[in-house]
Design a protein around this nucleic acid. Sequence first.
DNA 1: CGTCCATTTGAGGTGGATCAACCCTAGTGG
DNA 2: CCACTAGGGTTGATCCACCTCAAATGGACG
Lengths: 233, 233
Amino acid sequence: MLTQTLNNKVTPLVGSKVSPAAAFPVPDQFGAVTGHVGLVASEFSYKKDEEIYGEDEPAEYVYQVVSGAVRSYKLLSDGRRQIGAFHLPGDVFGLESGAAHRLAAEAIIDTTVRLVKRSSLEKAAGVDVQVARRLWAMTAGELRHAEDHMLLLGRKTAMERVATFLLEMDRRLAVAGMMALPMCRRDIGDYLGLTLETVSRALSQLHAQGILGFSGARQIVLRNRQRLHNMDA
Amino acid sequence: MLTQTLNNKVTPLVGSKVSPAAAFPVPDQFGAVTGHVGLVASEFSYKKDEEIYGEDEPAEYVYQVVSGAVRSYKLLSDGRRQIGAFHLPGDVFGLESGAAHRLAAEAIIDTTVRLVKRSSLEKAAGVDVQVARRLWAMTAGELRHAEDHMLLLGRKTAMERVATFLLEMDRRLAVAGMMALPMCRRDIGDYLGLTLETVSRALSQLHAQGILGFSGARQIVLRNRQRLHNMDA
DNA sequence: CGTCCATTTGAGGTGGATCAACCCTAGTGG
DNA sequence: CCACTAGGGTTGATCCACCTCAAATGGACG
C-alpha cells in the first residue's frame, strides 16, 4: 500500500519522543532502535478499516502506532478470520525477519503510524549489534504473546477467554481505571476464536455479576480484577 | 534439570555434521550459529516422558534434537495442556531472547539432544552480527509457526486441524512416503486443541475414505495429499 | 428526528466433549 | 513360543458449550 498520500511528513528521529497520543508513557521500542543510528521515520495516516499491508506482501516498512489501533490477522479461503494481535499506541508492528508480512494489517479506527524502511533497519542491525539485539527481542516478545494466545485458543473456555482479553486490554489501555476499546465485538471474537454473540453474552454476564461496568458498549471499567483473574484459569 | 549425568560427552563443533539419526538431511541451524564462533556443544539423553526444562525455568541452554522427539507445552492450573510445538531431529528448541523458558519441554520418546549454553550464544551474538541475525531468524521462524497455529486453533474445524497436522508431519518426518509418528493421540489432541477421541475419529474417517493407510496406529502413509490439502481449508 | 450499524438477546441446532466399553498390540514373563 | 497384561487406540451414546439464525434494542451521526 502506501500509494495514496494522506499525511506524509518526514521527520528525522534523534531523541525521538514517542506516542504523544498514548495516555501513559510506553517503552520506546522504536526509538530504542532508530535512535542509535539516526534513521529517518515518516508519519502516515490510515482511515478506519483501511489496509496497511496485506498477507504475504513484501515487508518494506516497519511501523509504530502513534495514535489509533491496528489489527493483524490471517484469513482462510472462505473468509474465517483469526486476529493474531491488536496494536495500540506505542506498539511496533510489521517487523519481519523474512521478506514478507505473514499477517495482514488494517486500521481499526483512524490511525497514525510512524514507519521506517526495513532495509534501513537491516543495515543498522548489520553494523550495530545492539540494534540487532533489539530486533530479536521485539520478535521474541511477539512470540511470547503468540504462545500465550495459543493456550487461550486451544484450551480456554469462552468466559476464560473474555476474562483474559479484558485483563490484557485493561493493562494496555486503561486510563484512570477505564478502558475505551477501539474494536468491535466481531474483532474481539475473531481475536478470541469466538463469535461476536458469545463475546457479547460473556460481557453481559460479567456486567450482571457486577464485575464490570459499561458507559456505552466500548467504555468498560473493571470493578473486580481479582474475580476476573480467578475466571481466567 | 541436567543434574543427572546420563550421557554427557563433550564434542567441539567445527564443520559440524548434524542429526545423524535424521533419516534425511536437515538444514543445520545449530551449526550455522555455533560453527562461526567455535562454541562447544554437549550431548545429553532423556528417557521417554522425562522433563527437559520446566515453564518459567531459567533458560540456561539451547537445544537441538539429534534423535527422538520433544514436545513444548503450557499448562493451565487444572491440568489442561496446550502443546505449542513438536521438535524433531534437526530442530532447535529452548532458544529464548529473555531469561526464562516460556514453555516446558519433555521428551516424547527416548531422545538425544545437543546443547550449548545460552550465555555462549549471547556472547557470540554480541561479537558476530551474523550469529545475531541467525538467532533472530530462528525466533522469527518459531513465531511464523505460532501464527499459523493460532489460525488453526481459533478457526479451523477438527477435520481441518487433523489434515493440517498430517501434512505438517508428512513434510517434516516422512521417509519413503511413510511417517512414523512419535507421539500418542493425546499429544496430537493437545497440539490441535482437540480431545484424543476426536483425533482418533478424524483419522478413522480419513482411513475409511482411503486418504491414508495405517501400519499400526502410528505408522501412517498418505495416499492422497491433494485431497488432504483440500480438507485443510 | 431518522437512518444505519453495532450490540444485545432469544431460540434452537450441532460439532466436538464427555463418559463408557471394548479392542488391539507390544511387551513380559512363564 | 505363547498366554497374560497394560497402555494406547477405537468406537458408541449422550451431553452441552458454543454456534447459527433471527429479531429487538441502542447509540452515533447526519
